[in-house]
Amino acid sequence: MEIVVVGRHTEVAERFRRHAEDKLAKVTQLAPYARRVDVEVTRENNPRLSELRERVELTVRDKGPVIRAEAAADDRFGALDLALDKLTERLRRARDRRKDHRRRSNDVIPAVDVRPYDEVAAERETEAAPATLAEPGDAVEHQLGDSPVLIREKLHRAEPMTVDDAVYQMEMVGHDFFLFIDKESARPAAVYRRRGWTYGVIQLDTQVDGAEPVTELT
Results as ranks from 00 to 15, higher is better:
residue 2 E to M: 07
residue 3 I to G: 02
residue 9 H to E: 12
residue 12 V to C: 06
residue 14 E to M: 00
residue 14 E to Q: 14
residue 15 R to Y: 02
residue 19 H to Q: 09
residue 20 A to N: 08
residue 20 A to F: 08
residue 21 E to C: 01
residue 21 E to L: 00
residue 25 A to S: 15
residue 28 T to F: 03
residue 36 R to L: 10
residue 37 V to T: 06
residue 39 V to Y: 06
residue 42 T to C: 00
residue 43 R to E: 09
residue 44 E to I: 12
residue 44 E to D: 15
residue 45 N to R: 10
residue 48 R to K: 14
residue 49 L to N: 15
residue 51 E to C: 00
residue 52 L to R: 13
residue 54 E to Y: 10
residue 59 T to Y: 01
residue 61 R to F: 11
residue 62 D to H: 11
residue 64 G to M: 04
residue 66 V to W: 00
residue 67 I to N: 01
residue 68 R to C: 08
residue 71 A to Q: 07
residue 80 L to G: 08
residue 81 D to H: 08
residue 82 L to E: 10
residue 82 L to W: 01
residue 83 A to M: 04
residue 84 L to I: 00
residue 84 L to C: 02
residue 87 L to S: 05
residue 87 L to G: 06
residue 88 T to R: 15
residue 93 R to L: 12
residue 93 R to Y: 05
residue 94 A to I: 00
residue 95 R to A: 13
residue 95 R to Y: 04
residue 97 R to I: 00
residue 97 R to W: 03
residue 99 K to S: 11
residue 101 H to V: 05
residue 102 R to N: 08
residue 103 R to S: 11
residue 105 S to C: 02
residue 105 S to M: 11
residue 105 S to R: 15
residue 106 N to K: 09
residue 108 V to W: 02
residue 110 P to Y: 03
residue 111 A to K: 14
residue 112 V to H: 10
residue 112 V to R: 12
residue 113 D to H: 07
residue 115 R to A: 14
residue 116 P to Q: 11
residue 117 Y to W: 09
residue 118 D to M: 06
residue 122 A to K: 10
residue 124 R to V: 10
residue 126 T to A: 11
residue 127 E to R: 12
residue 127 E to M: 12
residue 128 A to W: 05
residue 130 P to N: 04
residue 130 P to C: 06
residue 136 P to L: 00
residue 137 G to S: 08
residue 139 A to K: 06
residue 139 A to M: 11
residue 141 E to Q: 15
residue 141 E to A: 14
residue 142 H to Y: 12
residue 143 Q to N: 06
residue 144 L to N: 12
residue 145 G to Y: 10
residue 145 G to K: 09
residue 146 D to T: 09
residue 147 S to N: 05
residue 147 S to I: 05
residue 150 L to A: 06
residue 150 L to K: 13
residue 152 R to P: 00
residue 153 E to A: 14
residue 153 E to S: 15
residue 154 K to W: 03
residue 155 L to M: 13
residue 157 R to K: 15
residue 158 A to S: 13
residue 159 E to Q: 12
residue 161 M to I: 06
residue 165 D to R: 12
residue 166 A to M: 05
residue 167 V to E: 05
residue 169 Q to T: 07
residue 170 M to H: 01
residue 172 M to S: 07
residue 173 V to R: 12
residue 177 F to D: 07
residue 178 F to Y: 15
residue 179 L to A: 09
residue 179 L to S: 05
residue 181 I to N: 12
residue 184 E to G: 08
residue 184 E to M: 08
residue 184 E to T: 15
residue 185 S to F: 03
residue 187 R to L: 03
residue 187 R to D: 03
residue 191 V to I: 10
residue 191 V to D: 02
residue 191 V to W: 02
residue 193 R to A: 07
residue 194 R to A: 09
residue 194 R to T: 12
residue 195 R to A: 11
residue 195 R to F: 05
residue 201 V to I: 15
residue 202 I to T: 10
residue 203 Q to M: 09
residue 205 D to Q: 13
residue 206 T to L: 14
residue 207 Q to P: 02
residue 207 Q to I: 10
residue 211 A to Q: 15
residue 211 A to G: 01
residue 213 P to L: 00
residue 213 P to I: 01
residue 214 V to I: 14
residue 214 V to M: 11
residue 215 T to G: 08
residue 215 T to K: 14
residue 216 E to D: 13
residue 218 T to L: 12
residue 218 T to A: 13
